[in-house]
Simulated scan of single mutants.
Amino acid sequence: MSYRYYLFPDEGDPLRISQRLLEGLVAGRDAIPHYADTRQRVLSARLELEAGKPVRILETQASIWVFDDEGHIRDGLLQALVLAMDTLPTPPKDEKTVVELRPRTSKRKLEEEFRWEPGQSEIDRVIADIWPKQKADRLKSIQGELKKKPPLTSDARWAIEQISTDFWKFANLISTLKEPSQKSFGFEARERAQEELEYAHLYNALAAMSDWQLEVQRRRRTGRGVWYAVVEVMLHRQDIKAYETAERFYERCSSRDEAVLAVRRLLVEHASKFTDYTTVEGELLTDLEWEQRAYPD
């Protein structure tokens, strides 16, 4: 089997979505800025292959991708996943009416916001691309932000895996140092960078890691500076046996004390989103930690 993916913009011909671009969009690594802040129709076709060539369309699925202001789709996909999980039947509880209404409401919202019905013209356009009779039948491919990376050779893979094996040790050792030790560690690393020039880049990188950790420690000790109050709705993905952020709510605060109060309020506001397959979790972050996690400001 094989899959083909197509995007149907409001104007112009459909565009093919490569497997590489699809994987990048789903993982949040890639984006299509051209479609930022829009909702786009997407059609996927599951094909049966013989000798590597498509011989039959087994199934098509039509969905709507919601692009954020940077052209990413991951948040929209997670919203659709949460609604799809809500449509699953649940065992009856005390408030039977409420339990029965939730799946129907979620299903209606899922159909209205994340599904569409392709017509014969859209199906015919996909068929023409899969089995083209002339050059014009082939659809153009859409491009993402990421440039195609060079192939990773076996010796390059081996080298980077060997080098990065102990990265966690570096970060862990530096994070355990107290403030006086952080200062002396950073100073010593920069001095060694001057003395051992062949390793200067590595020593400077270690010093920069220590500087960052030192500033976080200072802010956590004093409570000063910019803080973020963060509450996340975590979805339990049984297919990969892990939790994934389905929704994130946050507020930028001028102190740690203000952020503590904001987290409490956000937890109360979103407590109803706690279910048997989602959790609601609060956290305090300095602005340095916020930026390190690449959250939107």
Rank of each mutant, 00 (worst) to 15 (best):
T222C: 06
R16D: 08
A294R: 09
V231K: 02
A189H: 01
W65A: 07
G28Y: 01
H270G: 02
E247Q: 09
L101A: 14
V226N: 01
R74P: 01
T279Q: 11
T176I: 09
D297L: 05
E258N: 03
W131F: 15
H270K: 10
H34A: 15
D155I: 10
A136D: 13
T90P: 00
R192N: 08
F170W: 09
L266M: 11
Q213T: 10
R218E: 11
R4D: 08
S18F: 05
M209I: 04
Q61N: 13
S254D: 11
R39E: 12
G223L: 06
P54A: 09
G144W: 02
M1N: 08
Q194R: 14
A205Q: 11
R29S: 09
P180Y: 06
D37P: 00
S164R: 09
Q40F: 01
I142M: 11
D124K: 12
D166V: 10
E281P: 00
E179H: 04
D75C: 08
Q162P: 00
E283D: 07
Y243P: 00
R219S: 10
E198D: 14
Y243S: 08
T278F: 04
G119W: 02
D211A: 13
L83M: 10
P9H: 05
E291N: 07
F274G: 01
E145I: 10
R264K: 14
F274R: 13
E50G: 09
E283W: 12
R4T: 07
L43Y: 02
G76Q: 06
A51C: 04
Y6A: 08
L173G: 04
Q194S: 14
T97M: 14
L15E: 07
S106R: 13
A51D: 15
G223D: 04
P14W: 04
L214V: 00
V231S: 04
K148R: 10
V268D: 12
P103T: 14
T60H: 04
E198C: 07
W131I: 06
E258I: 03
E269P: 00
L15A: 15
L25E: 01
I142F: 06
R219V: 00
Y295H: 11
A31G: 02
K273L: 15
R74Q: 12
D239K: 07
Y35V: 02
P132G: 11
E188W: 08
T90L: 14
L21T: 03
L261E: 13
P180S: 11
R248Y: 00
K178L: 10
R102G: 03
E48V: 07
W290L: 05
D129T: 07
S272Q: 09
